[in-house]
Design a protein around this nucleic acid. Structure first.
Lengths: 330, 330
DNA sequence: CTGAAAGCGCTAACAT
DNA sequence: ATGTTAGCGCTTTCAG
């Protein structure tokens, strides 16, 4: 291992001068600086992260708590977050932790391994978030709007996308509806549900309880719900799904049952997964601005790490309706 | 922050005794140990990671270099790897780094932030791997067999799955073949290609060059290749795709062109993605033992971190052929 | 402008 | 069995 002492020796200066050159906040004589820079380069010096962290009491790292890595939106989010982190010279620690108390994050903060935590978990339970936030640790919620929680959050407008979905159907005379939602203990799905309901209420449209399905965010849940619709004898004119994955299952089951999409039934998803564009689905959906969420989330977090105080900020980014063949018929 | 001094003070012992209790290699009087344990618990003590790392010269962390987070097998691998890491009390640093020299990993090791590196990148270029390995850093290659590289590697048998694919077709009299492969500069695709070719050679079967497609690992590449087949006027009796994603595109394009799968053309994928089971695809494929790869990979890495020397180990795990409706017709 | 020295929290000798 | 002490590599006073 090459230490700053080695560099100092090679450059015929004191170790403190090497440190000064590296941090650049103090004045150093041009010739000395030159020698140090050369030695730095020749020896391939890289500062010891632990020593620096111990001395400065800052790890230069953020932790990401992920409980649903297999959720299809997660890779895009992680890709975007790690890219943003790199641009800001932040190290990323990844915790695969599905405990709502987020014990790994608690330990990560207490051990000084990270300076801040990003919660990318889908579940509503927030004991872990609360504990950290109350200790003054910079905490960020991505893609979940939690008005009751006094921490920074950046999310897409889940409720708005649900509202837009219902409005889209009703504006086009499709008022014989069915819906298939994900779990109630997550953020995104209930929010989309609320938005959908709000629009229904405004227009005085009702949806029968037996056509209001709630389950997991999965192809299988969509398949099962659509199968139930088929078996009920009468079909709705349109189905809204709170997630693309669910919509794929709905479309597949309907077609398997001899029902045409969109001629007989319209189907809409939500998420804008790359697959939604595939020919067998050609799904009308709402694009989630993942990159934008990652970017703004990191911006906020970095500001807090830099010591910014003040009220928690709740940033909401609108989604974009993408109309495709699963609803668009002449 | 709670330090071991605070604990020592609360327990009326010296700080060294606290350390002894924590590390448990030296004898401590029962009553003292008891007091320390209680203080530890009451104060919610967590050792400072930096101090420990600096003192022991071990970070207790591994880095994962990922260049293709959006590759659909990646989330499963990452999920499995982080799970394994947690079981072994290892922290995971994630580097989103597509530079073959893996500069983030180099810095991570030099700075002492990690003790070992896992390469989960798809590309063949290995300057980064070589540099670390030659410096004696524990390095692990997951899901890429690179016989020329003297480092530990755990991979599924890509070549074997290619061979099995060809054998499956030929054993059933399907010898009018087409193939659609992923990029030549990755590990998995060319290996699958080699296996497929080897079986063809053994049986004296040839595939026309214009029916041997090479491109990206994507739905789009599958779609484009199948479209070319359709436009060529004559169809093969079976198509092997080096990845499920590609196969989804092939099936979609064939069906869009009015061709029935499997009645007219058989299609086989490779990867065993969850979607391969979906009704619109119902794809025959080769399941990749991702969890097993992660587990054995971590086992090897931990052994090396513990100081195990000796020849690099190349572990190869067989894949499993899953026959579904895209090939199985009476 | 620069060198010497203190100290971050911890482990591991070294004393006792 | 346990307290004292010396650093790990770094940043930051404090002298000069």
């Amino acid at each position: 291992m090459v230490t700053s002492r080695d560099v100092a020796h090679a450059a015929h200066v004191s170790q403190a001068t090497v440190s000064r050159v590296l941090n650049g906040n103090t004045r150093v004589a041009p010739e000395a600086r030159e020698r140090v820079l050369r030695a730095l380069d020749e020896l391939g010096y890289v500062p010891n992260a632990s020593a620096k962290a111990m001395r400065t009491a800052r790890a230069g790292a953020v932790g990401i708590v992920a409980s649903e890595m297999l959720n299809p939106y997660f890779p895009r989010l992680l890709d975007a977050l790690t890219r943003e982190a790199r641009e800001r010279d932040l190290t990323v620690l990844l915790w695969n932790d599905d405990d709502p108390a987020a014990p790994m994050a608690q330990a990560g903060v207490k051990s000084g391994a990270v300076d801040a935590v990003i919660f990318a978990a889908a579940k509503q339970e927030t004991t872990g978030v609360d504990q950290l936030a109350s200790r003054g640790v910079p905490v960020m919620l991505v893609n979940r709007a939690d008005p009751g929680n006094p921490v920074d959050q950046v999310t897409s407008d889940h409720e708005g996308s649900g509202y837009a979905a219902a409005a889209y159907f009703l504006d086009r005379g499709r008022d014989d509806l069915a819906t298939v939602f994900g779990p109630r203990d997550t953020f995104a799905s209930p929010a989309r549900e609320r938005g959908f309901r709000r629009c229904l209420a405004e227009r005085g449209v009702e949806v029968a309880t037996r056509r209001w399905f709630v389950g997991t965010t999965s192809y299988e849940h969509g398949w099962a719900s659509a199968t139930a619709l088929l078996e009920s004898g009468t079909l709705p004119s349109a189905v809204f799904c709170s997630a693309d994955l669910i919509a794929f299952g709905v479309i597949s089951a309907l077609r398997r049952g001899g029902v045409r999409v969109p001629e007989d039934v319209w189907v809409m998803g939500n998420d804008g997964l790359p697959m939604s564009e595939w020919d067998p689905f050609d799904l009308t959906t709402h694009r989630q601005p993942i990159e934008e969420i990652a970017k703004q989330g990191m911006d906020r977090l970095v500001a807090r790490m830099a010591g910014e105080h003040g009220e928690p900020r709740r940033i909401m980014i609108p989604t974009e309706l993408i109309v495709r063949g699963s609803t668009a018929h002449a």
